[in-house]
Design a protein around this nucleic acid. Structure first.
Lengths: 288, 288
DNA sequence: TTGCTCCTCACGTCACGTGAGGTGGC
DNA sequence: TTGCTCCTCACGTCACGTGAGGTGGC
């Protein structure tokens, strides 16, 4: 039998940790003195503790460890849990590597001449979920009235079958380079899942995207597109799909459909627009 | 001005996060209605929020971010912080990769025939700090009385100058393979830092070591040595220095010196011994 | 007897999440 | 007027860390 202090020294954990494992029902002392409350541990419990610490090191929570150890040892369940953890670990490894790339990018941009608060990126990287849309695609002479018309008719069509989802409409630029004249564009209206029966829909797939949001008239897009490209370059990312512009707040005609008030702007100064660029790492990430 | 709900949607954070940043003094709303307490955010604050999120993503705490952003932008301080974070990130990346190797090792040992609770390793990996010792090294015919004598005289020598540190004595096996006959061994007594003036000392350097602790007579060492080797192989680790055995609780003569009671055992059944193997990854870890 | 070990509350950490219960805005 | 948005407590999360204040053991 070991007193808690000796036991903790041998296992190189704190007494508080042992208290905690006792409370959590993970490792109950072999004997507890009824009068003094002193905890005494058996030599064999040193091994149990090491197993607990091994599993904790692999990233399991104390609850999971209790589940894995308490009712006998089930190698199959253990294998399953390990496989789950493996996947989590791999993706967190990739995430950390991406983080490191972004950190290096920021560092590099600071050591350049124009070190300014502007160096801290406003572009954010996120994983976009797949989204159902009703869309119309065509080539337009310029990004003006023609595009507006595409959205109006698409909105009206979706409104007729009451399939509008509560998400912002967006425009996809299908040309390899962003261009404003003679552009191949697709106007997309998010629709509810399950609207395929009543409507011509397609799914915009899940992607990693870089995003920047800005307020004001649309003429800022080219500037932000440049900023986006610089960010991608510094972050070690490459364009992996067509660019798109999401309209969070905008002006609309509303003939044949109705939009909630909070998405409508009366002045172009109040427009809220987001530029999105699907991206993929230039350096392929190491997986298996 | 945006209401908090719109602002949070645009930035893809929760309202609660904005509340939290307000409380933390990180991002105070441009205007707060005195009557209703409603928070209103300016369009320019969207950028500030993105910068905050960028830095948070790189792993900075909210406190650190406040420090970096609040009193003007200091590129030098930022660069310093980034460099610190870079080091942390690199080492956590290495740790995660090692974790993955250990997970795979455990997984492999489970799919083998003898899937048993024993598969969960009791060997633990840790970083040992450098340690000052007084030692004597010699070749001994067997690991018995001769070794004991080495420890007794070393303890007595250390005791004379009152330089004993509160740590367990250990034996280093200098032969390339663990052997019990005609072995080149070194008995080490931990001493206080600053004892070099009065005593012949050396420093056992910092190392990554695999450890197993057991209780009972010394005859278990060979068995645990085997277990240690199997663990190293599965974990992708190689022996990187001489093996050692640490005596946490043992029998002693105490002629010419005194040990605290809790390290003394009256029966060999109560001995507590730890086997330590300095290790290094077989696959060199990727750094820069 | 003295100092050391151990005990049980109770609160803190970090970045929010999750209700409860209530009020303002369109 | 109704439903929606927003508000402020207040407590929970996870694996312990950090005292406070007190008692047993050698």
């Amino acid at each position: 039998m070991f007193r808690i202090g000796d036991f903790s020294r041998l296992a190189r954990v704190t007494i508080k940790t042992l208290h905690h494992y006792d409370e959590a029902g993970l490792l109950t002392p072999a004997r507890v003195d009824h009068l003094t409350g002193y905890r005494y541990y058996a030599a064999a419990q040193l091994e149990t503790l090491q197993r607990i610490l091994s599993l904790k090191d692999l990233g399991f929570s104390l609850d999971e460890i209790r589940g894995l150890l308490e009712r006998g040892f089930d190698p199959e369940r253990m294998t399953e849990r390990l496989d789950e953890r493996r996947i989590q670990l791999l993706s967190s490894l990739e995430a950390e590597q991406a983080r490191l790339r972004r950190l290096d990018a920021l560092r590099a941009s600071l050591s350049g001449a124009g070190a300014q608060p502007q160096s801290i990126p406003v572009v954010t990287l996120r994983e976009a979920a797949p989204i159902d849309v009703h869309s119309r695609r065509q080539r337009v002479a310029s990004l003006g009235v023609e595009v507006q018309k595409m959205f109006e008719t698409a909105e009206a069509t979706v409104a007729q079958v009451r399939a509008r989802a509560d998400a912002s409409p967006f425009l996809i630029f299908h040309d390899p380079e962003y261009c404003e004249a003679n552009a191949d564009v697709e106007a997309c209206i998010p629709v509810k899942a399950g609207a395929q029966a009543r409507l011509d829909t397609r799914i915009v797939p899940a992607e990693s995207i870089g995003c920047v949001t800005y307020r004001g008239p649309y003429d800022q897009t080219p500037v932000l597109y440049e900023a986006m490209l610089r960010w991608m370059e510094r972050s070690g990312l490459a364009l992996a799909g067509p660019l798109r512009e999401v309209y969070h707040r905008f002006g609309a005609d509303q003939s044949g459909y109705r939009l909630p008030n909070h998405v409508l702007a009366t002045s172009s100064a109040d427009y809220v627009t987001e530029l999105q660029a699907p991206v993929a790492p230039l350096v392929p990430t190491r997986g298996e």
